[in-house]
């Protein structure tokens, strides 16, 4: 069942259009991640759903009911702010039970819920601690508990892990996903970090300049980026102009094989680094190795071909050539995507 639906949601700030006729749906118990660079309208999207930002046109429907004219405090959604926005003058329990107090819940019920939630987010017994004494990760957990406490039908997260360091972030993503699964929470999160989005979401929505650029499961988006923008945003830089004929394309790098059924004619073409195979320098496209980046037991090579734009290639650590070496390159069709737009 569809819990949240946006119909042609449009928001303008002066001459700038922050949301441009955005349509999307979030089903119950689903986790959807909106992904986009800063300024793409992600945060505005959340504010619109929360009722903090009025729409210039379009509609927001929660469980089928139009929300125009419903103020923020009556929408029954939860929003976790980017920098948490914990109430500085209250302790942890005072923050977590805020929503319950607003609903007039009895003290006993509030205390029980706070205890449960703090347990859930991994901060048992932190009720009386001052907010200022918490670390970034702990504040994060308190903010999450606060958003969950009133039992919102839709939980929205704005850059939920944005300010935390890398290790903590990777651990929390896994925890969050497990938590939302268990609670059956419906979640709409926004982030600019694609690895976070792909780890957290059942579906991702990529936004650009206030428009939806692509929507789909993480796998779909990862495997078949809809446009050069999405491809580059996902971190793929091997994009080149191409003319596709049958199962091959003419590019600045020479002939590149493409999967069967690719769109024909002139367009853009993406080769994922895994599809750039190293061969002896005498075979294939000759390239100089410009730089190497180590990622675990994988190495990403930055190559300068004889012709055409620079290439990124992935290879195993033990096979990695040294900087300044000359290598040959060939392409494999199943890592090549012909991009639309």
């Amino acid at each position: 069942m569809t819990l949240l639906r946006l119909d042609g949601a449009t928001v303008r700030f002066g001459g700038h259009t922050a949301l441009d006729a955005v349509g999307m749906e979030v089903a119950e118990h689903e986790t959807v991640c909106v992904l986009g660079p800063s300024g793409s309208g992600k945060s505005t999207l959340l504010r619109v759903v929360a009722g903090l930002q009025p729409l210039d046109s379009g509609r927001v429907l929660l469980a089928g009911h139009d929300q125009s004219g419903v103020p923020a405090h009556r929408r029954g959604v939860g929003l976790m702010f980017q920098d948490h926005q914990l109430f500085p003058q209250r302790d942890v329990a005072g923050n977590v039970d805020f929503g319950l107090r607003m609903r007039g819940a009895a003290r006993a019920e509030r205390e029980r819920t706070v205890e449960e939630l703090l347990e859930l987010v991994g901060l048992p017994g932190a009720q009386r601690r001052a907010v200022a004494s918490l670390s970034g990760g702990e504040q994060q957990r308190v903010a999450l508990a606060r958003a969950l406490a009133p039992g919102p039908r839709l939980l929205m997260l704005d850059e939920p892990l944005g300010q935390l360091d890398r290790g903590l972030r990777e651990r929390l993503v896994v925890e969050l996903r497990g938590l939302f699964r268990r609670l059956g929470t419906t979640v709409l999160a926004v982030t600019h970090d694609q690895s976070e989005a792909f780890a957290l979401a059942d579906r991702v929505v990529v936004m650009r300049d206030g428009r939806v650029e692509q929507a789909g499961t993480p796998l779909e988006v990862w495997q078949r980026p809809a446009s050069e923008f999405v491809a580059r945003f996902l971190g793929f830089d091997n994009v080149v102009a191409a003319t596709v004929t049958g199962e091959a394309a003419d590019t600045a790098w020479g002939k590149v094989p493409v999967p069967a059924g690719s769109p024909q004619g002139a367009g853009r073409l993406l080769v994922r680094p895994a599809g750039v195979r190293l061969v002896p320098a005498t075979d294939g496209l000759r390239c100089d190795v410009l730089a190497r980046t180590f990622r675990g037991d994988q190495v990403t090579l930055l190559l300068r071909p004889e012709e055409g734009p620079r290439l990124e290639a992935g290879c195993a650590l033990r096979d990695a050539p040294a900087e300044g070496d000359t290598v040959g390159v060939s392409f494999t069709a199943d890592e090549v995507v012909v991009l639309g737009g």
Binding site: A50, H73, F87, Q89, G99
Partner: peptide, 27 residues
């Protein structure tokens, strides 16, 4: 007083008057 603090309270179900009492006044 960060306006988003007020928004945080509103999303948690506080009416405008309640926001003033719960967020602005203590600060």
């Amino acid at each position: 007083v960060d306006d988003r603090l007020r928004e945080a309270a509103a999303v948690l179900g506080a009416s405008p008057l309640r926001v003033w009492r719960e967020v602005d006044l203590p600060l």
